[in-house]
Simulated scan of single mutants.
Amino acid sequence: MREDWGETIRKLEGLGVRAAAEAAAAAAEAGCTPADFEPHIEWWLRRRGLWRRPEGVLFHRLRRLRPGQSPTDHWPPFDPDLEQRRRRDRDRQKPDASEQLRRKYEREEEQRRRREAVRPLLEAMSPEERNAFALQTITQ
């Protein structure tokens, strides 16, 4: 295998393909060049989250690569359950509506308690004292 494959192999290894040299050697033996890999790698990068083991998918696709093959062909089917599992996991991480309402109620209740605690102090002040207090609070 020629030297120009070194950069491609390093790129594949950086993407998690453990047997990058093997994939490159098989493709080179079939007549492919490093430039033939690029469109396939780019296509895979945009869809890598659709397979359970995306690095293995890339390895097998590139190992079987032949000159002139379209980057959209010869990929295994996407994992149909993967997107559904990811959506379910995201939903578990989001607080449900009842939890959001509970938090909102707790915040409002805390604000009400604070207002009630300050009310007797404000009612004991004269109008001038309340105005001075309000101005002092606003300018802080």
Rank of each mutant, 00 (worst) to 15 (best):
E110F: 08
D79Q: 05
G14D: 03
E108H: 08
A134S: 12
I41C: 06
G68F: 07
A28G: 14
I41W: 02
A132S: 13
E99L: 08
S70F: 03
H60M: 07
L135T: 11
L65W: 01
D89M: 11
E108M: 13
R18H: 05
R53P: 00
Q111C: 03
P71F: 01
E38L: 14
R88Q: 14
Y105Q: 04
P120G: 09
C32M: 07
R10W: 00
D96A: 12
A24D: 02
W43F: 11
A28S: 15
S70N: 12
E108P: 00
E110V: 04
E123F: 06
T72G: 10
E7H: 07
P95K: 11
A117E: 14
Q136G: 06
V17G: 01
E99T: 13
Q84V: 14
Q136Y: 14
L121S: 07
T33G: 08
G56D: 12
G31P: 07
A124D: 13
N131S: 15
R47E: 12
I9P: 08
A117K: 12
E55H: 10
R10D: 10
R113D: 05
R114S: 02
E38F: 07
A27L: 02
G68C: 09
E55D: 13
M125F: 12
A26C: 08
P77W: 03
E110A: 15
A21Y: 00
E110S: 13
S70T: 05
D4G: 02
F59K: 01
H74V: 04
R107H: 13
V118E: 13
T139E: 15
K94I: 06
N131F: 13
K94H: 14
Q100F: 02
G31L: 08
W5H: 04
R92A: 12
A124L: 12
E22P: 00
Y105R: 09
R2V: 07
P127Y: 06
E38M: 10
Q84Y: 01
E106H: 05
A132K: 12
M125S: 12
E42F: 04
R61H: 04
T8Q: 08
R119E: 15
A24N: 03
P76Q: 13
G68T: 05
T137F: 14
C32E: 03
G56Q: 12
H60K: 09
R107D: 12
P95D: 06
D81P: 02
P77G: 09
L45N: 08
H40E: 06
R66E: 14
R90L: 14
R87H: 10
T72D: 10
R103Y: 00
L45V: 03
K11M: 07
